[in-house]
Design a protein around this nucleic acid. Sequence first.
DNA 1: TTGTGTTTTATTGCCTCC
DNA 2: GGAGGCAATAAAACACAA
Length: 272
Amino acid sequence: MESGRLLFDPSCHGNMLFLGNGEPLFRGTRSVINMEETSKRRPFFSSSEELYDEEYYDEQLPEKKRRLTAEQVHMLEKTFEAENKLEPERKTQLAKKLGLQPRQVAVWFQNRRARWKTKQLERDYDQLKSSYDSLLSDYDSLLKEKEKLKAEVVSLTEKLQAKEVAGAPKSEPLPADAPLVSTLLVNVKVEDRLSTGSGGSAVVDEDGPQLVDSGDSYFPNDEYPGCVAPSEEDDGSDDGRSCFPDVFMVVEQEREQQQHDEGEPLSWWVWQ
DNA sequence: TTGTGTTTTATTGCCTCC
DNA sequence: GGAGGCAATAAAACACAA
């Protein structure tokens, strides 16, 4: 075999390697070149002129895979911020500027996109988790409030019964707070059906008791348009956001803000 | 120094698009 | 059918504790 000097063919997408004499090698290096040969491979970045420069090559002999220089990485990062995919012309231009093979630039962008995607998934996970934790906390406080109100109702009911047992004549008008107690009783029954909410009491507000209408829906659809009950029409394509539209809107807004703060590229940001 | 985990660079195979 | 994208993976380079 030839001395192991390998050349990239920038025009070939398929990672085809060529020996110095132009003889094509198998796609990829692992299956063809043993360790001794790989140790003599050219540095991974160098200009096409340098590939043929014996002196340069000899100097770099012990090196195998070389990392890109800080300047090269900086330039690539800057370009990536502006555009996460390169037009072929731009790729060639950039490669020339950096003294890299176009293929190396393409690979760098490929890997950079993969890294960005991983990071983005981590960010999404963190945001969803904090949303979940916050909802859980709301749920817990509602549960406590519910128990407190229940106890209050029991206490008031007992007081009322005690008064009746004490001999209050039936014809006597009810105390002023009687309607309040009966309304509370109705509300607690309805409130028992609730499992979650967005904070605050759905039963009693500061303005006093609210009468409950006879309808079954406690969350009218026009008030929670994104909250749809599962139906037979559900094709399973739900993206998981249907029941917490406002939460996800907040998450989206936070993400946009975060990207802006971190200087993440905005122009090309898309869900993949 | 060495073992081990992480990051970076590159390859491979498959898929989509024109 | 070729070009280019992505996911999965290999392997070199690097970081770091013991």
